[in-house]
């Protein structure tokens, strides 16, 4: 057993982080917020060139021949950076939908009763007839509701959607923990950094514990690919992201409640992701059913 990042995996993670900082730093995030809701095509192609969508395709088909662990690492970075767009759907379409692998085609899919980025996508997978827009809670994720919303057992395998979404949640969890700790070290009240108050310090420590536990679960699920591991990882990652973002908001005080601060964007995105792949309830049922598996 060597359950840690290899040199190559570390390098991939760092390179992805640098790429995203270059193409989607703080200013680009603000611009995306103020601009119309469409994916930045230049950024999308840059991601394509870097192999973000194609990395799991075999080399013979233009990919990098890498596996789920590497995919999880780059999606974690995307989550950290709040990168908008139907990233998971496009990644999963690589090799099946022309242009997806290179980032030339933006692909979305119908997931339960919702479709993200419907108007801006080049290709929609699934039946989106009769879709109506809703006023999305997340300013960076346009949403449509679809009436057909198929029952769970008729849906295609959502395992990879759930896993890559959990990786994005993990990125959010890590990022909001960092933001909270930074703020707790810098902001002073009563003559000292607010992080010197245990009530604040312990909130931050709790965020770290949830993040690191989720990290172990998400990475392990990427290694095994096991559907129960994946369901478990999503539960941990959703919790780490959503509770982390809320606690981060709390640590930021009034500043956290402003549109100006990036904290609310993390929380809103984390909430959007909790609805993907059948939602939390379905994952809980998957793990629960497994508890009885040996006794049937």
């Amino acid at each position: 057993m060597r359950f840690g990042l290899t040199e190559d995996q570390r390098a991939l993670r760092d390179a992805t982080r640098r790429l995203l900082a270059r193409h989607f730093g703080g200013q680009a995030l603000r611009a995306a917020l103020d601009g119309p809701a469409r994916p930045d095509r230049a950024l999308w192609r840059a991601l394509g060139e870097a192999g973000f969508f194609s990395l799991r395709l075999p080399e013979a088909r233009g990919g990098a021949g890498l596996g789920l662990p590497e995919a999880v690492l780059v999606f974690e970075e995307a989550g950290r950076a709040l990168l908008p767009g139907p990233l998971v759907a496009t990644h999963l379409a690589a090799g099946a939908v022309a242009g997806a692998a290179t980032g030339e085609a933006v692909v979305t899919d119908v997931d339960g009763g919702l479709v993200e980025w419907l108007a801006a996508a080049d290709v929609v997978r699934g039946d989106a007839t009769g879709a109506v827009p809703l006023r999305s809670l997340d300013p960076l994720t346009p949403l449509h509701r679809v009436p057909s919303g198929r029952p769970a057992h008729e849906r295609r395998d959502v395992r990879l959607t759930v896993l890559l979404t959990a990786a994005e949640q993990l990125g959010t969890a890590g990022r909001v923990c960092e933001l909270a700790a930074q703020h707790a070290r810098a902001r002073e009240q009563f003559g000292r950094p607010v992080g010197a108050f245990q009530a604040v310090a312990h909130l931050c420590a709790g965020m770290l514990v949830r993040t690191e536990t989720a990290r172990a679960a998400v990475y392990a699920a990427a290694v095994t690919g096991d559907p129960v591991d994946v369901a478990a990882a999503r539960l941990l990652a959703d919790e780490a992201a959503v509770r982390g973002a809320r606690d981060c908001l709390q640590v930021h005080g009034g500043m956290g409640f402003t549109w100006e601060s990036e904290v609310h964007l993390h929380l809103k995105r984390a909430w959007v992701r909790t609805r993907r792949g059948g939602g939390v309830t379905e994952s809980e049922e998957v793990v629960a059913a497994d508890l009885l598996a040996g006794t049937a």
């Binding site: 057993m1 060597r2 359950f3 840690g4 690191e212 536990t213 989720a214 990290r215 172990a216 679960a217 990475y219 392990a220 129960v228 591991d229 369901a231 478990a232 990882a233 539960l235 941990l236 309830t281 994952s283 809980e284 049922e285 998957v286 793990v287 629960a288 059913a289 497994d290 508890l291």
Partner: peptide
């Protein structure tokens, strides 16, 4: 059922965390 499912996820994750720490 869902509560037990959540605990199942929790202990799976804790086992992975042990493996992660031990590898480190």
């Amino acid at each position: 059922r869902r509560r037990l499912g959540r605990l199942g996820a929790e202990f799976r994750a804790l086992w992975r965390l042990v493996q992660w720490n031990v590898s480190a």
